[in-house]
């Protein structure tokens, strides 16, 4: 029973949270990597795009809730998602029209776009705080648990509980669906292929009659969807706070780079690598090791390798190590 208990504990405190967090990071990193691949810059406003989209979802959720509309055991926010995505898409396309398109016409270098994205980041950030404030917002409703501690114990007869929050389950299901649709779109549709072609070789794409503006529009639309979904899932799982979303930028960038900038598969892999590393290293492993090791060797301390505040350090160390060993990231991105 002991190893089984250890496994359950590990699943409960490490695997389940890390899979959920990894899915959220992966969706965020996909957005960053798409922009990097097609528009050729790292979008510093991505965290705030996520915050903005999530805010739109939250406001819609509140509206639905006050109108008495719910989604049964599922969070109402899922019903509000399409509205949030539409609002975020309008914002991103508007930003592209007002800010980025000018620099494309001027054939500006990528770093000019990076600087422009800093300005956009300030504006989004200020706007989000202006509308919804800086405080924590919880908007998850519906059933709280898919597997509750008691239910798991009764069903399996094990001493250790396993808890799966419904938001974690929803996160994973939604992420799988979104990724499947995205990959189908990129690999199977004419428009998706033209986006890959444009990212691969801009001049040749032009020679083939691919319209860059169309490619860019589709990119922003997809990014709006990815950012809003990632932000909403993160907010459902934890809570919504504009500043937290801004800070997600680092793990998201780290995930995208670890996976290989510009590579969608890499963004997903990177998201999970970063999430698992962060959760494992900042979780006190005492209980898990206690089950594995003989009594005499059982650790005295918590065996928390690093305090939770150092989770950024974990993303960062992984990033440096991966770049030393594989300069192009795990899935050979376009950054070399």
């Amino acid at each position: 029973m002991e190893p089984l208990h250890a496994l359950v504990t590990l699943a409960n405190f490490v695997i389940v949270p890390a899979v959920a967090y990894g899915s959220q990071l992966a969706l965020g990193a996909l957005g960053v990597t798409l922009i990097y691949g097609i528009l050729r810059f790292s979008n510093f406003a991505h965290g705030d795009t996520m915050a903005f989209g999530t805010m739109a979802v939250i406001l819609t959720t509140w509206g639905l809730q006050s109108a008495g509309i719910g989604f049964g055991p599922l969070p109402t926010a899922l019903l509000a998602l399409p509205v949030g995505i539409a609002v975020a898409a309008a914002l991103l396309l508007g930003t592209d029209r007002v800010v980025y398109r000018f620099y494309r016409d001027k054939k500006a270098v990528p770093v000019t776009f990076v600087i422009a994205s800093l300005g956009v980041m300030f504006v989004y950030n200020g706007f989000t705080r202006f509308v919804i404030g800086v405080d924590d917002q919880r908007f998850a409703d519906g059933a709280r648990f898919l597997v509750s501690a008691r239910g798991f114990r009764d069903a399996t007869g094990l001493d250790e509980p396993l808890v799966i929050k419904s938001t974690q389950a929803i996160t994973v299901v939604v992420a799988v669906v979104v990724v499947a649709v995205l990959f189908w779109f990129l690999n199977r549709t004419r428009t998706g292929k033209s986006m890959r072609a444009y990212s691969d070789n801009e001049d040749l794409a032009l020679l083939s009659g691919i319209n860059p503006e169309r490619v860019v529009t589709y990119t922003w639309l997809i990014v709006a969807g990815l950012a809003t979904i990632a932000g909403t899932l993160y907010g459902l799982d934890k809570s919504f706070k504009p500043f937290t979303y801004f800070q997600l930028l680092l793990p998201i960038f780290a995930a995208a780079i670890v996976g290989g900038l510009g590579s969608p598969i890499g963004a997903i892999a990177g998201g999970f690598v970063i999430a698992f590393a962060e959760v494992t290293i900042t979780y006190p492993l005492k209980k898990v090791l206690g089950y594995f090791l003989p009594e005499s060797l059982a650790p005295d301390g918590l065996v928390q390798l690093l305090s939770t505040d150092y989770k950024f350090a974990v993303s960062f160390m992984i990033l440096i190590i991966v770049l030393l060993i594989r300069p192009t990231g795990l899935f050979r991105g376009k950054s070399v």
């Binding site: 810059f41 790292s42 054939k107 270098v109 990528p110 001049d203 780079i257």
Partner: peptide, 20 residues
């Protein structure tokens, strides 16, 4: 806008844009 001051930071920018 085409001055990158020699920046070639691959973590934020991707080189090799269209030249046509």
């Amino acid at each position: 806008w085409q001055e990158d001051r020699g920046n070639k930071d691959r973590s934020i920018t991707r080189s090799g844009g269209g030249t046509m």
